[in-house]
Design a protein around this nucleic acid. Structure first.
Lengths: 346, 346
DNA sequence: TTGTAGGCGTTATCAG
DNA sequence: CTGATAACGCCTACAA
């Protein structure tokens, strides 16, 4: 009924628990026949070691913590996918927690995970995080950390990101080459790394193509698009400016969809009146009205790499003696919301 | 550096570990002053109990396992959301694993979770699962189980589902009332509960409105829509029949999107030539081309209820002496893919 | 009211 | 080559 233990096996085979343990750990310093006997019996009774006992003994939980803004989002769920696959393959399980884009919950989760004694933590920062002290406090205590996608702007940490500068540069360039002159950029709060990098790519493209950067065409969304009211107010405000934009570059899933929705409501012709490029990993971008030109981040691969690095950090910290900073390329999927082969009629 | 233990506190305060333990557990059988002293000190040094030790002692892991087909899917990620929130609030963490719609990986995950000594398991079955023996074997050993959404067709188990019959009935009725006569149903393999129930709702609506059920208008997808090749072959086949349908009712996220994509490719007018209703929790259903009439399941609530029930089962099994079978209502979001207020031009 | 001792399951060290 | 012992951190009879 209750799980078989080493003690049970020892009793059944008239051996000591140490011998059984040795056999199970496949030690070479023992009689091969004894070993075989133990292994066979263990197999027969379907023995599997109690992970809590192993963990207690080794002071390792074989668990990694994950803190991210939200789960129900194409980018993050693909990211989890990559993380889970790698973690699982290495015998780790993943404890997921969501910050819901608030700093308070993020710190709560951090405390929860450390009290859970996870062996390492993966983080994608909330849009409201400015103070990294709680993270550094844990790092100083030796907890391995890897940041993914939304990483700290400064400080020595391990990070896995996608090439936000390049992605944003290419998206902007694409719009410019289509003749757009007043390209607006809708993005997350300033203090996020992704914001800075995407903004920089956007600016550089303008510069390279002799368009002047206009501050009034950049809108920062405090909640990164998570609050519908803020989205509507700001986007309508942008479109109602005296000199409205002729194209939008939205820097997040939610901002992209909010923009599209508002363009629909205003019955604007896309891309003639207003072109739209958005960062999104949603699989149905091509089925939207109109099919959406999208910046697609390599979410699954980012998850894989992040988990891989974290597990290396956990298992052989000395091997990784420099701070890693891996940058994976994004894709620009060009569709009708910019090239407009199919007219959108509302 | 290393975490504070009860022993550390005992030493610092010149007490025995049992006294410290008692204070921490807020025992009444002790000197209030001693208790206060311990509590204050524990607070000061930021003591938190080692969960592995607690788990080993109590033989409870405070973890629940979750097996589902995939994470990167709007329905399942919302489901996880609900589960996580409830679990977290009760001090449990969730170990997620994906079957990727195969039976083999599902059984692997089951074994992994039980070797991990999770306190209970939540399952949404893969589309290929027919043999429930591995589940029942574990149940017989006392492992609490709750099934969600894709639940076993027979056998005494706890289940949380949405009202598939009603949802499907209403969707079909909606199509009939719009004048559709040849409504096709695209669905998962026959042995899934959701398939049977959705098929039954579909049939009943036809019956109630004097339309005859035609076997050739029902298509079962072995992989539940996960394999693009099967999707295309089957859907094109359906549309190429001598008497093609005039409406589609797709019973899963992937089948819905695959259908829409193929209708696009064939330049069909939706809903005039072909109406489409699909089961999907994708937030952007309203931004699709055309905006999609969707059956939306209460994924978050299903997750909450499932986690709540499982935790009850774990913590007070005697309280739940009957098999629960909770059925939550779905929503039908009616949009242009059926009522066609906005023409779709390709 | 507090302390001692033993055990949860495992493994490493040290004897034999 | 095998066995006894102790320890990981916590809790709880039982003893004082």
């Amino acid at each position: 009924m209750s799980p078989v233990t080493i003690k049970d096996i020892a009793r059944a085979l008239n051996l000591s628990t140490s011998t059984v343990s040795r056999a199970l750990r496949d030690s070479s310093e023992m009689n091969p026949e004894t070993k075989k006997m133990v292994l066979d019996y263990a197999q027969k009774v379907n023995y599997s070691p109690n992970p809590m006992a192993v963990s207690l003994r080794a002071s390792k939980s074989k668990a990694i913590g994950l803190i991210l803004p939200e789960i129900a989002n194409a980018f993050f769920s693909q990211l989890i996918n990559g993380i889970e696959d790698v973690a699982y393959a290495h015998g780790y399980h993943v404890v997921i927690s969501q910050s819901h884009e608030t700093y308070e919950r993020e710190v709560n989760n951090l405390n929860y995970l450390s009290s859970r004694r996870v062996d390492g933590i993966l983080v994608s920062l909330s849009s409201l995080t400015t103070d990294l002290h709680p993270f550094h406090a844990l790092m100083d205590q030796g907890m391995p950390f890897v940041f993914v996608d939304r990483v700290p702007q400064q400080g020595q940490v391990h990070k896995i990101t996608s090439d936000n500068f390049e992605a944003s540069y290419n998206a902007t360039k694409h719009l410019i080459e289509l003749g757009k002159k007043r390209i607006a950029h809708l993005t997350s709060p300033r203090y996020l790394s992704i914001t800075t990098e995407r903004l920089a790519g956007y600016k550089k493209a303008l510069l390279d193509y002799d368009l002047t950067f206009k501050e009034e065409l950049v809108k920062y969304f405090h909640y990164g698009g998570a609050v519908a009211q803020e989205n509507e107010k700001t986007i309508h405000g942008l479109l109602d400016q005296v000199q409205p934009p002729d194209a939008l570059l939205a820097a997040s899933e939610r901002l992209t969809m909010a923009s599209l929705e508002i363009l629909h409501k205003r019955n604007m012709r896309i891309p003639e009146e207003m072109a739209l490029v958005g960062f999104t990993n949603n699989a149905v971008a091509g089925l939207l009205n109109p099919p959406l030109t999208a910046v697609v981040q390599p979410a699954y691969q980012m998850g894989e790499q992040a988990a891989k690095l974290l597990i290396e950090l956990i298992e052989s910290p000395q091997k990784v003696n420099e701070f890693q900073n891996l940058i994976l390329p994004s894709l620009l999927d060009i569709r009708s919301s910019t090239i407009g082969s199919k007219p959108f009629i509302s």
